[in-house]
């Protein structure tokens, strides 16, 4: 088997505070993420998913256990190693306003490559490529403050892409966006994954978003509750509700109908699937 891109080995993490007793946010996480995977990590607030995100590039390091990126441990005092890790794993956060550094789109996208000390021509090439990949090239000279929230988030993703990472981790990037922008971000990520082979780790609390990924990891109270393809994960309606998550309507209807004795396929995720299986049911009964 190929060496995993990112590997969590029995990771525990506690937030230390001077006054109160430490809060355990991650409890024994073991997780492997391979080249080019398309993963969603889902959980409600306080499930530890953001803490997990910050372990991917060494912003936080485990209290015990270890995180390896391309075989390199994130718990290192060697700056070069940490830079190598951050070059490989890009990060995008929830609020685009608090992660963009420059007032102008292309200047912001250039920030990362400039930090790497690349020659100007190479930076320009990467910036243009990243903006084009996110359909933002025509906005390259725009002021950030004139963009919509969704466009700002695409700029932030372009900024991560310009580092030529193996993997991009996005921590609830759509939480503040309207449905239209949400869809645009999701579609862009899918394209990056399919066309550029970049592994995507997408953190969310929305089931309706998670269903679009190839693999879903459900977190609850600092632990991984489920890990598998969405069809498999979402068929376990009770476990999901226990984790405080909203079940997609199509999935819920399917589950309720099964309970009433209708042979609807378990793990129905999308509207289309449900409608098709209902139509089949009708013609067979």
């Amino acid at each position: 088997m190929l060496k995993p891109l990112v590997e969590f080995r029995n990771v525990f993490f506690s937030y230390q505070s001077a006054s109160a007793k430490p809060v355990e946010a991650l409890r024994g996480i073991s997780l492997q993420i391979g080249q080019g995977e398309f993963i969603s990590i889902i959980g409600q607030n306080g499930s530890g998913k953001s803490t997990l995100a910050r372990h991917f590039n060494g912003l936080l390091t485990p209290t015990s256990g270890e995180v390896l990126v391309a075989g390199l441990s994130t718990a290192t005092s060697d700056r070069k190693q940490l830079l190598e890790i951050r070059k490989r794993v890009g990060m995008v956060f929830q609020n685009p306003d608090n992660q963009l550094i420059s007032s102008i789109v292309e200047e912001d996208v250039a920030f990362g490559p400039e930090n790497l000390g690349l020659p100007p021509r190479e930076i320009r090439k990467r910036v243009n490529h990243a903006l084009a990949a996110l359909n933002m090239f025509k906005y390259r000279r725009e002021l950030i403050c004139h963009l919509s929230e969704g466009q700002k988030q695409l700029v932030a993703i372009a900024g991560a892409l310009a580092m030529k990472p193996d993997c991009i981790v996005l921590d609830e990037p759509t939480a503040q966006l309207d449905p239209g922008s949400r869809k645009q971000v999701l579609e862009s990520l899918k394209r990056l994954n399919r066309e550029e082979g970049i592994a995507i780790v997408f953190i969310t609390h929305l089931m309706s978003e998670a269903v679009n990924f190839d693999r879903v990891v459900v977190m609850d109270r600092g632990e991984i509750k489920m890990d598998g393809p969405p069809g498999e994960v979402f068929s376990q309606v009770e476990l999901l509700e226990e984790a405080g998550l909203d079940i997609p309507v199509a999935t819920r209807l399917a589950a309720e109908l099964r309970e009433r004795g209708y042979p609807v396929a378990p793990g129905t995720l999308h509207v289309e699937e449900l409608v098709n299986s209902l139509c089949q049911l009708r013609s067979s009964t």
Binding site: V249, R252, E256, L257, R260, Y262, L278, L281, R282, T285
Partner: peptide, 18 residues
């Protein structure tokens, strides 16, 4: 969802019944 469920059940008829 509850309304939808009962409407779908109504439209499908009882499971296994023609």
């Amino acid at each position: 969802v509850q309304e939808a469920l009962s409407e779908i059940v109504k439209a499908l008829g009882r499971p296994g019944v023609k």
